[in-house]
């Protein structure tokens, strides 16, 4: 018995380590390319270790574009979206998951339907809307919609909220609590993992969003990092080594945020573990 458990544990580890190698490949590729010359990056079969290490790629990349300003701009947008996404989506999801009201099914259907039409054909109508509101070249079109909730987030949270036992609500209603109290005292504390997931996704989305800033921002002083990275590429040419160096710097915060964020998953277990 013991032995077979041992064996299966080793198999699991083997699978995970093999998977990790594959998953580390892109990052490793990115980092090694960020310290190579443009030419070395493309050598086939690939060289895995840069020789020589060109650390100057980093200084050159970060000074070629206005990195600090783009970083600040991206941070502003990302932070604003993050807060908005968490508040509005959890409110909406609570309603769809646990409260009954007339028209709920219809509006939930509408919510899902809103994700089913490719963005290419709604881009121009949306743009015209923001232009008539005179908000082109501001961050408002990038932030405000998030504050009214995103369909993906609401649907995701709804699935989680729906899994929380109903007896908890019933008991609270009996004690005279209202929906708000239940939401705030029971639902939110019990759904830390999904909320962290939503937070991470929201962070990632705004951090990497390229199309939104491209379409809505005109002045370079307002640009984001995702746009800045594009500056190393052009029709006929690309400064690959600089692009790789800049990309490495840009994803570093994402990795850190993710690493920190996912640790709270564990905390979730103990809380969800208490069952009504």
């Amino acid at each position: 018995m013991r032995k077979s458990r041992r064996v299966s544990q080793i198999i699991v580890y083997a699978i995970l380590i093999l998977g990790s190698v594959f998953c580390l490949l892109p990052l490793f590729w990115l980092v090694r390319s960020s310290m190579m010359s443009s030419m070395q990056i493309f050598e086939m079969p690939p060289k895995w270790i840069p020789s020589p290490f060109r650390f100057q790629n980093y200084t050159e990349a970060l000074t070629t574009i206005d990195f600090l300003r783009f970083f600040r701009n991206t941070l502003t947008i990302t932070a604003s979206c993050l807060i908005g996404a968490l508040i509005s989506s959890s409110l909406g999801a609570y309603s769809y998951a646990r409260l009954d009201w007339p028209g709920k099914k219809f509006f939930f259907g509408l919510l899902l339907a809103s994700m089913m039409l490719p963005g290419a054909v709604t881009l121009i109508p949306t743009f015209i809307g923001w232009r008539l509101a005179d908000l082109i070249n501001t961050y408002v079109p990038l932030i405000l919609p998030v504050w009214f909730g995103s369909a993906f987030d609401i649907f995701l949270l709804r699935q989680f909220y729906a899994g929380i036992p109903r007896d908890l609500d019933e008991a609270a209603y009996v004690d005279g609590a209202g929906p708000w109290t239940i939401f705030w005292r029971i639902i939110i504390p019990l759904s830390k993992p999904p909320l962290i997931v939503i937070g991470l996704f929201s962070f990632m989305n705004s951090w990497n969003d390229f199309m939104g800033p491209l379409v809505y921002l005109n002045e370079e002083s307002k640009f984001t990092l995702a746009l800045g990275l594009q500056m190393f590429q052009s029709l006929h040419s690309a400064q690959w080594h600089l692009l790789m160096a800049a990309s490495t710097v840009v994803i570093l915060p994402v990795i850190i945020v993710f690493f920190i964020g996912q640790r709270y998953f564990i905390e979730g277990i103990t809380l969800t573990g208490m069952k009504g």
């Binding site: 121009i124 743009f127 015209i128 232009r131 199309m211 491209l214 379409v215 005109n218 370079e220 800045g228």
Partner: peptide, 22 residues
Amino acid sequence: VEPMHIPADYLTKLTTMVAGNV
């Protein structure tokens, strides 16, 4: 002169601006 450097997807951006009358 306001330089408008469009780093990628040039035609998408221009199409949108033309459609939006800007």
